[in-house]
């Protein structure tokens, strides 16, 4: 008799396969399908619904209460401290991307903020003219030339991709010193989970205004979020540099400026 685990795996596999979007054969539709790059769209939309339900029932009330009961300086302090704690992960990814200067900035900020900034509560380094930056293993893989893979929507974690989801796991369970700490069975195992929970609420509380705005102005919030996430992510990978010229999607088989002024339409 197959074990419970293998039956569960078989169920997940069946769900995943049946949840695959069908690949169109029409060339123009195929191009649109490839641009969307969301092979698991039906499954992702289900996970998106689960995420939205969890968000409404749990995360949002917590983040909302958190915003209500704490003054902004306190939230900034917590946010700063959580960012500071993540410095080793950023440093490691700076190095893996061959960004020596950025790695030095990360380490210098970590030292200054942990000491003068009282355990990272105050971003003293920024006030001294050295603002920080984020990095993660998904971005490192992108710099190494790994494509983002198909889109992935994870409950609680939100929009991501196969590459970035994998990167998230590597950061959390291999690069983060707090995970090393919890690998020792003599240590408190809950610390890492508390930290992840805190990071989640902090991230939610700081992105809530932007995502709410997108939700109100969109008629397919999932599709809008998928697009906005990809563009935001592409900019993070470029370390904030503007998009290279010609990276805008053009009309499928037309040449030239996608914003060209109206020309007389050929009779249909």
């Amino acid at each position: 008799m197959p074990s419970r685990a293998s039956r569960a795996l078989a169920l997940i596999a069946a769900l995943t396969l049946s949840a695959c979007a069908t690949r169109p054969t029409d060339p123009a539709a195929l191009r649109a399908y490839e641009e969307t790059n969301d092979k698991w769209e039906p499954l992702n939309r289900t996970m998106f619904d689960v995420d939205q339900a969890l968000d409404a029932a749990l995360i949002r009330p917590v983040a909302w209460t958190y915003r209500k009961v704490t003054p902004e300086p306190v939230r900034d302090g917590v946010s700063n401290a959580l960012t500071n704690i993540r410095s080793p992960v950023v440093f490691l990814n700076d190095l893996l991307q061959g960004q020596g200067t950025r790695a030095a900035i990360t380490i210098a900020r970590f030292v200054v903020n942990s000491t003068l900034g009282i355990g990272g509560l105050f971003d003293v380094a920024k006030r001294m003219g050295t603002p920080g930056h984020g990095e993660d293993f998904g971005q490192t893989l992108a710099v190494w030339g790994v494509g983002d893979g198909t889109f992935l929507y994870l409950p609680l974690l939100g929009p991501t991709s196969v590459r970035d989801g994998f990167g998230l796991g590597v950061d959390a369970f291999a690069f983060d010193p707090f995970s090393w700490y919890s690998y020792n069975p003599h240590n408190n195992q809950s610390v890492q989970w508390y930290l992840l929970g805190a990071q989640l609420v902090d991230a939610k509380s700081s992105t809530m205004a932007t995502t709410d705005e997108l939700k109100k102005s969109s008629i397919d919030y999932y599709a809008a979020l998928r697009s906005a996430y990809r563009q935001y992510r592409a900019r993070e990978i470029r370390n904030g540099a503007p998009a290279p010229a010609g990276s805008m999607p053009a009309f499928d088989d037309e040449e030239g400026d996608p914003f060209a002024p109206e020309k007389p339409q050929a009779p249909k």
């Binding site: 649109a32 641009e35 969307t36 997108l214 969109s218 008629i219 397919d220 999932y222 599709a223 809008a224 998928r226 697009s227 906005a228 563009q231 805008m248 999607p249």
Partner: peptide, 10 residues
């Protein structure tokens, strides 16, 4: 781009 990709889905 965001509107374009959202509306393509609709």
């Amino acid at each position: 781009i965001t509107y374009r990709q959202e509306y393509a889905s609709i």
